Each structure stands twice: as C-alpha cells, then as structure tokens.
Computed example of a mutant assay.
Amino acid sequence: MQTTVAAVTMVRDDPFFLRIWLDYYGTRLGRENCYVVNHGRGAGVSAMAAGCNIIGIPGEHHKNFDMRRWRLLNNLVMGLRVYYDHVIVGDVDELVVVDPAAGKDLVPWLAAIPADRVLTPLGLEVIHRIDLEPEPIAGKVLGPRRHVRVAPHYSKPCVISAGTKIARGGHFASHDKLHAPDELYLFHLKFCDFPAYVEVMNARNAVAAATGVGVKEASIGRHWFAEARGEDRALFEGFAVLPKLEGFQMGPYRRRMHRSFKPRGDTGFWEFARPDYNEQHELPERFLGLF
C-alpha cells in the first residue's frame, strides 16, 4: 500500500494496546508504513507487529527512560518526515482519529492538509463505565465503550509535517502556530478497559520499581509508580459520578486551546492551558466501530 502517512510508537510487552494500535494504523496506512520501536526486543511484540518496521532496542530499566525515549522518537520522526508528508507519533495507547462527519478517513483527510504544519488533535479519554458496560473488549473498543472525557493533557502536537522538536511525553512542540482542526481527535485508551488497566499498571509498576529510584528522581511518568497509583476499582467507579453533558459540542474546548496558546516560558516550546475537565460525554453513533 502506498501512502504519504507514517505512524510511530514505542512499546514494551503491551499486547492489549499494541493489537488495537496495529489494527487501526496497519489497516489504514499499511503495516509497511508503521514503525514500532520494540523496547527490550520482546518476541511477542515482534510476532504481533510482523510486517511493520520493527526497531529493536535494549531493554534495561533506566531512571531517565522517558527522556531517552523521546530523544529517540524525535530523531526518528524528523528522519521519516523526509520521506512522508505526515508522521504520526505517540504512545501505543493513543490513536489519531478523524470525525466520520468529515466524510473521509484518516489518510485521505490528511492528503488535503498543507505540509509544514504540526496538527494538535483534541484529546478524548475513553473511560470504562463499569456500571454500564460489563462486556469485555473482544474486537473493537468503541461500541463496548461509549463514554469519553475531554483531556487537554492528551491534546498533543502529534501529526508532524514540519521541522519541530517535541517535548518529553509528547505534550509540547517548538512549532509556534496551533493547528487544531475541528475534525481531529486523539483517543487515549488507558482507561478503556478495567481488567486491561490492572494488568498494564502492574507491568508498569514493575518497570518503575526496577529503576531503583522514586518518583522524584526519575524522568518517568508519575503514573508508572505504585506509590502514585491509588485503588483501581475506586478510580473506575468514580467515572460514574462525573456529570454527563448532553450533545457532543467540542468547539468550546478547542477555542480555549487557541485563546491560551503561548510560549512555554523560555523552553522553546509552546503550550495552551490544560485544565482538568470533570465531565463526560457519550460518543455519537458515528464513532462506534472505528477501532
């Protein structure tokens, strides 16, 4: 399959999310345009991602894991940009999605986007309403899961067609213009399934513990540490009490992004306000079955 779009992620022994990532991007871009950094050279990752461009790297645990990871991803994205019009980069539990109301899927939609831009989708966190959604995720995520909350923390500058530098974690870029198209979303899947969440967090806690340092000494996301985890079931039960807003009006959230867009101090990066929104929305039918 010929395409002008590539997708890049890094993964370590995370089959639940890797399967979803591969099904989504592999179908749309062709696996030959998917780049999977296999941290630790896991045989399971290599087998599942067969047909992709697999980059095996050593798997030792390091307190500066996130810093190292984004240094690698930055350079990989900038190299691939020479050969692709757009490069999508992000964690394995993140998917960039075009609203079906646009009438186009991801690749044809991006084909109409001018080059030399950095696109920032609006972040939507899929939440598992364990009180309403007892069925497991066996194939598609959206359908069994229908509820999201707006998550500015995951409104990431992640579709790259310009020379830029991305900050650790992928949350900021050095690009000084904000392009946040109305049709573009980033779905974050960390909380999309309670059993999967428990399994993944157990694995991440083990990785963090293997570094031998605590939260304050490490360049790793705080959520990787057992001391910052909290009680899993209470977290998911809390989703039920989030106020539910009628309709699916996302324009106000994007307008707040634009109004607050500014330099991030003297770091060379740009940012917008990232408040916590404690409301939930039910996805319109048109999104169900996309992944």
Rank of each mutant, 00 (worst) to 15 (best):
201 M>D: 10
171 H>L: 06
212 G>A: 04
237 E>V: 09
256 R>G: 03
203 A>Q: 10
7 A>K: 01
213 V>W: 07
151 A>I: 06
199 E>I: 10
158 C>R: 12
75 N>Q: 14
159 V>Y: 00
179 H>I: 13
165 K>P: 00
77 V>Q: 01
225 F>Y: 09
70 W>I: 02
182 D>V: 12
68 R>C: 11
221 G>Y: 10
288 L>D: 08
214 G>Y: 06
205 N>A: 12
192 C>W: 02
147 H>L: 11
291 F>L: 12
252 P>C: 09
153 H>A: 14
144 P>C: 04
71 R>K: 12
262 K>G: 03
280 Q>I: 14
17 F>D: 13
85 D>W: 09
8 V>C: 11
96 V>M: 03
105 D>P: 05
100 P>V: 02
183 E>A: 15
184 L>W: 09
161 S>P: 01
276 D>T: 13
5 V>G: 07
277 Y>Q: 06
18 L>N: 05
7 A>V: 07
31 R>G: 04
172 F>Q: 07
25 Y>E: 04
183 E>V: 02
61 H>A: 15
108 P>N: 02
160 I>Q: 02
129 R>M: 15
162 A>W: 01
198 V>M: 08
194 F>P: 00
77 V>D: 01
244 K>R: 15
48 M>P: 03
74 N>P: 01
171 H>Q: 14
68 R>F: 14
94 E>A: 02
